[in-house]
């Protein structure tokens, strides 16, 4: 990471932090995940129930999550059942839309592409961005291995792990240090997304394909059945949404201008501290 110029005493130096390929893949993923989430929820709406095992229980009960509309004396109500616990989710899940024109669907129109029920289009959108996500992951992995991003920026060092407790304390107090490298919580969460959640959501997605299952039957075995894979796909989606919320929150709290600039232009303003000035020495 090169240092651009000496800045005012209150600010650390501006450093070139993000390589072009890191920035390109980051924003491609952002677009992919947006479309994958909303088209995925459209697909989910075609049968808004998740099960454990190979098949869906119609003559027996192996559901772990379901969203449905039920008739009550007060009109239609949305019910969401998670592991046997039923919640009234009228207005959001099961029944949504206006009171005059209620819509009986698992996920509301605002969270699906297209807004109305259209499984065919949901699938077309989903599979296109699924391919794009996988291609981007392969490109990123190759480039990050080659340019040292993986080793230099993402692999937690021994010192990172020693700093883990203090880093957690700093985050809890919203005290952010803008260093040359990612802090340990960043490293761990990015690694969890890139090396756990992405592979999990891709593999469970593939396991739902009957063609892939014929070619690679062990995939179904690994996940404990096609319907379990579908449930895990949904769970991985939920964890990615959770990551997204925290990620955006951290960007806003740590200084959105600086953080966004680093992910758009590559240049990042570090905090003035002795570590940074030490690195300036030739």
């Amino acid at each position: 990471m090169s240092i651009a110029h000496e800045s005012a005493a209150s600010q650390g130096p501006l450093i070139y932090r993000q390589a072009l390929i890191t920035r390109l893949t980051h924003w491609t993923w952002a677009v992919c995940l947006f479309f994958l989430l909303l088209s995925g929820l459209q697909i989910f709406n075609a049968h808004p129930t998740l099960y454990i095992g190979n098949q869906s229980g119609f003559g027996f009960d192996n559901a772990v999550l379901s969203m449905r509309a039920v008739d009550t004396p007060h009109g239609a109500e949305g019910r969401t059942t998670i592991l046997g616990h039923e919640f009234n989710t009228t207005g959001v899940f099961g029944v949504s839309g206006s009171a005059d024109d209620p819509s009986y669907r698992g996920i509301p129109a605002a969270l699906t592409i297209p807004s109305y029920r259209d499984l065919a289009t949901g699938r077309v959108v989903h599979f296109f961005f699924a391919w794009l996500l996988v291609a981007t992951l392969i490109i990123w992995l190759t480039a990050s291995f080659a340019n040292g991003h993986l080793r230099r920026d993402l692999t937690p060092t021994r010192r990172d792990l020693e700093n883990f407790p203090s880093d957690v304390r700093d985050h809890v107090r919203f005290r952010f240090h803008h260093g040359n490298s990612y802090n340990v919580l960043q490293k761990l969460s990015y690694c969890a997304v890139l090396f756990v959640l992405f592979p999990l959501i891709i593999a469970t997605g593939l396991t739902m394909s009957p063609g892939i299952d014929a070619g690679f039957p062990w995939l179904v075995e690994v996940f404990g059945g096609r319907q379990t894979a579908r449930t895990l796909h949904f769970l991985a989606m939920f964890l990615l949404v959770l990551f997204f919320v925290v990620h955006v929150m951290m960007v806003l709290l740590a200084g959105p201008f600086n953080e966004l600039r680093s992910m758009i232009t590559g240049w990042y303003r570090t905090s003035p501290d002795k570590n940074a000035s030490e690195e300036e020495k030739p």
């Binding site: 129109a109 297209p114 807004s115 109305y116 077309v124 959108v125 919320v245 955006v248 929150m249 806003l252």
Partner: peptide, 25 residues
């Protein structure tokens, strides 16, 4: 700041869906 941030994030997500991409049908 955290609350405002969270609300902004959530609303942009919700607005995103809507009918912007219905032409794809």
């Amino acid at each position: 700041k955290l609350l405002v941030t969270g609300a902004a994030g959530a609303s942009s997500l919700v607005l995103g869906g809507c009918d912007t991409f219905d032409f794809l049908s």
